[in-house]
Design a protein around this nucleic acid. Structure first.
Lengths: 114, 114
DNA sequence: CTCTCATTTAACCTGCCGGTTGATTAACTG
DNA sequence: CAGTTAATCAACCGGCAGGTTAAATGAGAG
């Protein structure tokens, strides 16, 4: 997973409209018009959001006559999840270390008292 | 997990400098100066990045004389991971549905041939 | 009290992001 | 071919994000 790729994925996910589009696509493929319908923004704006999602690899687009159906791609989502989980794991182990260290310190203090 | 909260978390993670700061903090607490050292940007810029991370709840800051040590907070990372995984799961089940449907269709076609 | 060090705040600049409207391309339909 | 529908491209605009430098604040140290 390249750094640039993480940039694209996270900034794509940072916009609520784009997250809503992804949620909609989870139900099934959809065209630009269908995706734009629930929103109060222009078709062109939605088209741009789709381009962002495409660049992030989160969707791919087919061709069916004049329609361009969008479908989800799960791979970059997995990569993002992987990065996050690796971080969470390292942080947690760091906390565990601190925790052990704290307990060790307390134990030694207790011994010193006796 | 509120929508606004997801916005903050994802856009905080979307910047490579901030991800590097988080990675550094995973090793242990650090002050602003220590965090700024590896980067070629000004101290003030780092201070701002820290404010973004703080607003996203990804770090908290203590007070030790004139130093403001930063430490990680794992909770929002967990929330983000949760959202991503839920999405990935829904997408995957959607793919599985399509897959079953495809197999069903093929089976029926095969039966029709016989 | 003064000096120094760590950090933040303020003011500013620049570029990108998300939105708009208008024109254009692509593909079907009569 | 002319007309319609789907989608994109182009030009523009306002706001915010991330960077800078200069000034202000907070907390020790002498």
């Amino acid at each position: 997973m390249t750094d640039e790729s993480l940039n694209n994925t996270f900034s794509a996910l940072a916009d609520p409209t784009r997250r809503a589009i992804l949620a909609r696509l989870a139900v099934g493929e959809a065209t630009v018009n269908e995706l734009a319908e629930p929103f109060s923004i222009s078709l062109q704006a939605v088209s741009r959001h789709l381009k962002v999602l495409e660049r992030a690899g989160l969707i791919t687009r087919g061709r069916d006559a004049q329609w361009r159906p969008c479908r989800l791609e799960v791979a970059p989502l997995d990569s993002a999840a992987e990065w996050i989980e690796r971080q969470a794991q390292v942080w947690q182990s760091r906390f565990d270390q601190l925790d052990r260290h704290l307990q060790e310190t307390q134990r030694q203090q207790k011994e010193a008292q006796e």
